[in-house]
Design a protein around this nucleic acid. Structure first.
Length: 584
RNA sequence: GGCGGCGUAGCUCAGUGGUAGAGCGCACGACUCAUAAUCGUGUGGUCGGUGGUUCGAUCCCACCCGCCGCCA
């Protein structure tokens, strides 16, 4: 009986291209996990999309002189193509500006409101007189009333550290355009988080399988929950679905509140698009389904507190089973910074290098349990020593020897103890790698697969089929038969990590089917008349368990092999560092 | 300022209440089928500092130093 696995991937904000830190956090680990479960034959639903509402989108649009929708469209397309190029095989990657999303968000809002979990409150907020838009506290600056620091922000003074209200500032002005903001009373809706505190705490305490940092951080958050605003004075976002509010052009649902609901709305859209409108319930209402949420650590609170509280408030929807938060990736020792040019964008990287080496790096040296650093020197080393040297070389020497001497998979003689041992060792990987992957220990899982590749290199070195071929052809045939089996098995173990090159290898091994599907872009037309880009469809799920040791038959003809990976020149390190410095 | 994280071999990182591991580097050796790719052996750390709890701490607690992040 296959499992239902929801892979809920954090929604990238549509304010520009994604960099390596972003995809190290939410992207690659979630895809490895989803691909593993699909190979296993489990029913995976992997959902995400671009998060397109909120004030920063309107500011970005203003600075480029386009509408918020145009700005979001542009960035959605950029991001979708980056994720596709990385081989992230979503079942659906959609957006928050679809009619479907708006409908789902409004429905959830109404249900929470009717259940009494949403309350109105009146607050004093800053507005920009020239644009009529609300100005978040942190965009107001002025003189600190406590220490006199002239550039204090509306939420806190950077000089003396005191918490402030924007209304406290002397000579307040907008950090966006310098004008004097206007302060007005405004009515907003608040989500009653404290109503869920006790139930959330009981739930979190039971989640012993969570990463400790996620669990501890969440338990601390739960000690002090306050009602949280879920509407804003803004003209860009989902309208508030209440009489007298729905039509107002200046009030919208706060972006965080609508964004987390995307997991559900995307699942519903996926079900609708494939003509089975109720199918999403298999992942959301089936008690045996497990939901795994992937994100960077800055997003933990939304996934362990806010979203679970919403789910509890609405009822009859599964809470997350695991919340897999990744730490931060730095770049050459410093934080990524788009504005300072200290950044490597995904598309820029992929214009010069292949996706699998990047995926390999982001898993093997990524910020899984603590912050980690991307350096070009380490990327070069990982590519050349590990991908090319250990794994790529094992594949190539095995295939070259088998193909050149036997034209394909050789007919073996009797297996020796040594032959059987290496086969057993590799076969054991199907359990050990699976166990690590299911526990979201990606780094260890990949290291385990590579360790097995090294064992096969060792085996070849001992058996030396290139010598035996001259004296004992049958012995050489047996060794290469064993080696081909090992390579074929390791191919399966590595497919979640390296989908492009494992598909290539699959073909070099003479298979004609698709082992590692890649996501496709399509245009989706909604009933409301709008259309949008969707990434997905290339994945689906297998009905069979392909996570099995090789059964490749002897006698199969193999094509002339070609290398899976490119060895990189050491000179790229200096060149890339110079490129980075040029961006500063 | 508040909160949090980190500090383990030259480097990048795992890890555990019973005085530590991997990969790389380095040294030497084997091999030369393979993208000069592989394989073996060896080298290497008073686990940031000081106290405390404990029969015993790198792992728990307190403080300190250093680095980083969040609140911003």
């Amino acid at each position: 009986m296959p499992d239902h696995i929801l892979v809920a991937v954090a929604w990238p904000y549509a304010n520009g291209p994604r960099h390596l830190g972003h995809v190290a956090g939410f992207g690659v680990p979630s895809d490895v996990f989803a691909r593993y479960h699909r190979l296993r034959g489990n029913r995976v639903l992997m959902v995400s999309g671009t998060d397109e509402h909120g004030a920063p989108i309107t500011y970005g649009a203003d600075s480029e002189g386009v509408s918020a929708q145009e700005f979001a469209d542009r960035n959605n397309e950029i991001i979708v193509k980056e994720l596709q190029a990385l081989g992230l095989a979503y079942d659906i990657f959609t957006r928050t500006t679809t009619c479907n999303h708006e409908r789902v968000v409004q429905d959830l809002f109404r249900r929470l409101y009717e259940a009494g979990f949403i309350e109105p409150q009146t607050v004093l907020g800053a507005f920009s007189p020239s644009t009529g838009r609300t100005l978040p506290d942190r965009y107001v600056e002025g003189t600190c009333p406590i220490c006199g620091f002239p550039e204090a922000r509306g939420d806190q003074c950077d000089n003396c550290g005191n918490q402030l209200d924007a209304t406290d500032l002397i000579n307040p002005r907008s950090r966006l355009n310098g004008e004097v903001p206007e302060f007005k009373q405004a009515e907003h809706f608040y989500f009653e988080l404290p109503a869920f505190a006790a139930e959330l705490e009981r739930w979190v305490r039971r989640q012993k399988h969570w990463r400790p940092n996620v669990r501890n951080f969440t338990l601390r958050l739960l000690e002090d929950l306050k009602p949280r605003p879920i509407t804003r004075d803004l003209d860009w976002g989902v309208p508030i679905p209440l009489p007298g509010w729905q039509e107002r052009p200046d009030k919208r649902i706060y972006v965080w509140f609508d964004a987390v609901m995307g997991y559900l709305s995307a699942s519903i859209e996926w079900a609708h698009n494939r003509g089975t409108p109720e199918a999403w319930q298999e992942w959301w209402r089936n008690p045996n389904s497990r939901g795994y949420y992937f994100m960077g650590k800055d997003n933990i609170t939304f996934h362990t507190v806010m979203w679970p509280a919403i789910l509890l408030g609405v009822g009859e929807l599964n809470l997350p089973y695991d919340v897999v938060a990744t730490e931060f990736l730095t770049l050459e020792g410093k934080q990524f910074s788009t504005s300072r040019g200290h950044v490597i964008e995904v598309s820029d990287f992929l214009s010069r290098y292949d996706p699998d080496p990047l995926r390999y790096y982001l898993i093997s040296a990524g910020p899984e349990t603590s912050d980690s650093d991307f350096t070009w020197a380490e990327f070069l080393r990982r590519n050349n020593d590990e991908l090319v040297g250990t794994w790529g070389n094992l594949v190539h020497r095995t295939l070259v020897n088998a193909q050149r001497n036997f034209g394909g998979v050789p007919e073996p003689g009797e297996l020796s103890e040594r032959d059987q041992r290496v086969l057993d060792q590799v076969e054991a990987g199907f359990d050990s790698v699976a166990e690590l992957l299911e526990a979201a220990h990606f780094k260890a899982a990949l290291a385990e697969a590579l360790r097995l590749a090294a064992l096969v290199n060792q085996y070849l070195g001992e058996e030396q089929p290139w010598h035996a071929i001259k004296t004992d052809r049958r012995r050489a045939a047996t060794t290469l038969f064993v080696a081909v089996h090992c390579v074929d098995s390791l191919k399966t173990l590595l497919t979640p990590f390296l989908p492009f090159t494992c598909q290539h290898l699959h073909e070099l091994l003479g298979y004609g089917d698709v082992l590692a599907p890649q996501p496709q872009l399509s245009e989706q037309l909604e009933q409301c008349g709008r259309s949008h880009l969707v990434l997905g469809g290339g994945a689906g799920y297998e009905e069979q368990d392909r996570w099995q040791p090789s059964r490749i038959e002897s006698g199969r003809r193999l094509p002339v092999p070609e290398p899976l990976f490119k060895k990189l020149e050491p000179t790229i390190v200096a060149a890339e560092l110079a490129r980075l410095a040029g961006g500063d």
